[in-house]
């Protein structure tokens, strides 16, 4: 049953040192505010899962919270490379980072298998690809009916998932629209799920019956954080702040600039600043 909490309570109750955690959002609805709260609370030794680790994973990794990252595309979308993640992989700064790398198809299938309660995902993939030679989690199975060899990867079953969404109602049902990514799958695959939302409304009366809704009993905790996806976006509320992604390339290029920026904008900050960041976008 979903509880309505403050962000600090929700993170304290649901994210533990050593957890496997997925902060998901496929460009859209990325839970930036929640990741910043995890950084403020200083969680350690996390295994981070995400299809497209971008700025928030660069921040979590650069601040030394992560032991391992499971991913399929580690770039700053449309801008370039993830400089903090690279520094961790190439130079062990601020600590060594283990990586488990997949393709998007594998990650998406692994979330779906997790949501479906299956131990593994089976799909037609990785044919001729080098990743299967360097990632022991990529195996194959033979179809018992046709004999076709198919790729298999373990299901994702994170201890906790964090997503951002547009709305929750008073019961705690969560509504997601626009690019839905893997938001539904990651919540259903995880043991616990924290959802930050733009707003809490009385009910979902009059909305289209096929909108993506997560019933309240699939969600552990709901937190209202207007602007909580910034500089990612929330369809219907505010657009992507592309200039912040371009700016991140400069901030993340230097360890000292990064450390100062994180102190000013994350460690010494609160979730309340997000609402102001999306005003005027």
């Amino acid at each position: 049953m979903a509880r309505f909490q403050s962000l600090s309570e929700a993170v304290a109750d649901n994210l533990n040192d050593g957890d496997t955690v997925a902060f998901e959002g496929f460009t859209h609805l990325i839970p930036h505010a929640a990741a910043h709260e995890a950084i403020r609370q200083g969680r350690k030794d996390l295994t981070l899962i995400r299809m497209t680790p971008d700025i928030i994973y660069d921040q979590l990794i650069g601040m030394g919270l992560a032991r391992k990252v499971v991913f399929s595309y580690a770039g700053n979308p449309g801008v370039g490379l993830l400089r903090r993640m690279r520094d961790a992989i190439e130079n062990n700064w601020p600590r060594a980072l283990e990586t488990e790398e997949h393709s998007h198809a594998a990650m998406a299938n692994a979330y779906e298998a997790g949501a479906a309660g299956l131990p593994c995902a089976i799909f037609r993939g990785y044919r001729g690809a080098g990743l299967k030679d360097v990632n022991p989690a990529i195996k194959s199975v033979t179809c018992p009916f046709t004999g076709e060899e198919l790729a298999a990867v373990p299901a994702h079953r994170p201890d906790v998932a964090f997503i951002h969404a547009q709305k929750a109602n008073r019961r705690g049902d969560v509504l997601i629209e626009g690019i839905v990514g893997v938001q539904k799958e990651v919540v259903l695959a995880a043991k616990r799920a924290v959802v930050t939302v733009e707003e809490i409304v009385d009910d979902f009366e009059g909305l289209h019956p096929n909108l993506c809704v997560l019933p309240h009993w699939t969600v552990t905790s709901i937190v209202e954080v207007p602007g909580g996806a910034h500089p990612s976006y929330a369809h219907g509320y505010y657009p992507r702040d592309n200039s912040a992604y371009l700016e991140w390339d400069k901030i993340s290029a230097d360890r000292d600039v990064f450390t100062r920026w994180m102190k000013e904008n994350v460690l010494d900050s609160t979730p309340d600043v997000f609402a102001a960041r999306v005003k005027g976008l």
């Binding site: 399929s72 595309y73 992989i89 190439e90 393709s103 198809a105 037609r124 993939g125």
Partner: peptide, 15 residues
């Protein structure tokens, strides 16, 4: 140099 990785490309290339 650690580049971003494959994303969707491994399966785009074969499917």
């Amino acid at each position: 140099v650690r580049l971003p990785g494959g994303g969707g490309a491994p399966e785009i290339a074969t499917s």
